[in-house]
Design a protein around this nucleic acid. Structure first.
Lengths: 237, 237
DNA sequence: TAAATAGTGTCTTTAAGACATTATCGC
DNA sequence: GCGATAATGTCTTAAAGACACTATTTA
């Protein structure tokens, strides 16, 4: 027996049963990259963890759906939201033909709040079994974040407005899973053209005060670093 | 008056009126990057040029739709097909709520055939007015291709199975719009780890015969070149 | 003043830029 | 042998790797 939801449009053709949007919310927590999951109470996949997505309404742009679902589950807006990709195989959802558009959503680690609504932060390398094709979607989100980390200002979403080099370094390390040599890290990030010193410093614990930096542009942007497709012709006789 | 198509699912909710897939078929032709367009005869946008997409059926994976539409229009299969992204704003299609998934499709310049079915190759920097949001989709496709050119083996889709360095160089130049210095081009492409010499050569016109290369892997892969996120810690006491 | 943390300077290594030179064809 | 095209070699320049060292804080 199949109790799949079906749909038909006013021209008589079969239509998708619905359309969903899911944010893959990532944040570095205690040195490791985490993803925000919610428990699923209904079938299918009751009892598993899933991404906090939901159905789009016909008057909503998909980013709005992703943003709305995120806010409902965490109370925060995403600092950074970009489309990941769509998953539309006919059998990806047992309920019927329901394509989904996945979004990568990044929020400042500082504004994270303890779980409400049962939502939970889970390390991306320790995922439980997820419902639907959400494990694949999380993997795609992590890959995108890692891939763009040094080539764009995507980290805007993961750092506060002003931050120190060591702070940025710890965030980058949590995402990439490697340990950077501090002085080279500083040089690379400065040379990337993505950040600039504010001239201010912070002190707190022991040690020399750290200089505060900010992103030159908080809108999505690519790194200015020139590494580097092959040389173009300059002088040729 | 609105004659938009609407749809409702068996659970009583509004559903998308349909779902489409569109391939952005790119190929270098006579030194310039071209995109495959078809004339649109029906409203909306009758008389404009559009991408050769079409409606998905409920039992079809979206890549299959994109591939099928491509074959219907050109008679060839894509060598390379990757999802670009989705466009799902409620008002993107005057006919109704019809999200679309766009695909980047690359085909070997050698198997291109003269236009059939009225399809036409148009230089991407000389586009006429396109219907729907297809101008934006083409731009996104071109950007993706350019962005991945040196960092992946995406050029697999644009070159024959065996190719010479000058041949590859001309293809790369058509895509990026710059002129590469031949010997450095060779060095970079060899060092990328993406291609290897076959040991064979071709002769034809005048001049020294060119060595034939092939891609080490024809499946999607990233370049091995190490350029380069900052150094990781090696020796620390 | 010691421990802790942040920041600077610099030498080495590697990759890219810019050619000049050499090799091998068809005519 | 000559023009045409492909391939190799090499010197210069720039960026990344690998630290040692200096600067400021709190306890």
């Amino acid at each position: 027996m199949s109790n799949r939801i079906t749909a038909r449009n006013s021209a008589g053709f079969t239509a998708p049963a619905g359309m969903t949007a899911v944010p893959v919310v990532l944040a570095p927590l205690s040195g490791r990259l985490h993803v925000l999951l919610v428990p699923r109470s209904e079938d299918p996949f009751a009892g598993t963890w899933v991404l906090p997505g939901g159905f789009m309404s016909p008057d909503e742009r998909p980013e709005e759906t992703a943003q709305r679902k995120l806010t409902e589950k965490t109370g925060v807006g995403a600092v950074y939201l970009e489309q990941l990709q769509s998953y539309a195989d006919p059998d990806r959802d047992p309920r019927g033909w329901i394509p989904t558009i996945a979004y990568l959503a990044l929020i400042d680690a500082a504004v994270l709040r303890p779980d409400e609504h049962g939502a939970r932060w889970v390390p991306v390398d320790r995922l439980p079994a997820l419902g639907f094709d959400h494990a694949r979607i999380v993997a795609d989100g992590v890959e995108r974040l890692r891939g763009k980390l040094w080539w764009s200002n995507i980290a805007v979403g993961l750092l506060p407005e002003r931050f120190t080099m060591p702070q940025a370094r710890r965030v980058f390390e949590a995402i990439s899973g490697v340990t950077y040599e501090p002085s080279n890290f500083r040089r690379e990030l400065e040379q990337s053209g993505l950040v600039r010193a504010t001239g201010r410093t912070v002190r707190g614990g022991p040690g020399r005060p750290a200089a505060l930096y900010e992103f030159a542009d908080r809108r999505p942007a690519w790194s200015l670093r020139r590494s580097r497709p092959p040389a173009t012709v300059r002088h040729r006789t």
